[in-house]
Amino acid sequence: MADRRRPRLLLAALALVSLVLMTLDFREGDDGPLTAVQDRAVALFAPVQELVGSAVAPLERAVETVGELGDLRERNTALEAELEELRQRSVSLADLERENERLRELLDMRDRYDFETVAARVIARPPGASRWSVLVDVGTEDGIAAGMAVIDGEGLVGTVTRATDGHARVQLAHAPEARYAVRLGEEGHDALLSGGGHRAMEVQIIEDTQAELEEGDRVLTRAFQGTSIPDGLPVGSLAEGGSTDRTPQLPVDPAVDFASLDLVQVVVDVPEAPTPEELDEEAEDDGDAAGTGDEDDDEDPEDAEDLDDVATTGHGLAGVRTDRPSPTGALPAP
């Protein structure tokens, strides 16, 4: 009987310890001694994870290669076709670059998106049930701090939540707790993006105005003073269209493939978000420009797509495409 009761007593005692720890951790938030212990544990274990990750990387690649053998012939054909297309495109690359430069000057967006980034490699995901964050191999020694945005070549990856000397924890943008201010579509409607977790990401329209949104409309970050999220980063596109008054919540297809993150960039220096007054002035200026620059306006959408192509095929680097202007060209009036 005593042998049977011992595990139950042990269960009760350790469950009590767990509940006490949970309560303490919940109460102290992000700046208490328990968080410091967690940070130290991550700092101790992360190098081992990094070592194991780099040691098994060739094996992973070999397994992936074997798994992909069936697709290789098909991909080879597709790559040959793409090569031919690129050869043709390279002829007009110089023209595109000049056009790119001209558009940047016209839109005057360079300064707004000229932020500094630090490259980072994703080394591990957290153990246990939570799969909504990753550990990257840069930390406070590299200038990383909590709240900084993390991006890759496709768009917003997430936000740094904790940073130790050499590592940082990044909460992914599709985490259930993640919330971002965003703007939608050509008109730039204000909305709040929720991560959703296992469900699709969702945007909630927070404007009173009635508007029609279409499937595929872009979802871009909106900068606010006091935050470190740059303005105009692609977050995804609307998976469904709808009217803002009838369907205030709409699902979003993320721009980033969260399942295959490898190299990312942490935005360490973001220009200050424009004040509401500056936004008003910009909106007025845009109105004036629309009245006098019809020819340019006609060219912009296609040229903006060309910008995407150049950034992707010409560099293919994470972060390069993120300092481009939004398709709308400027922030709408608040």
Binding site: L21, M22, P126
Partner: peptide
Amino acid sequence: LLGDGLLGSGAL
């Protein structure tokens, strides 16, 4: 300790 959840939740 290595994750980002509440300390003690995984243990429980």
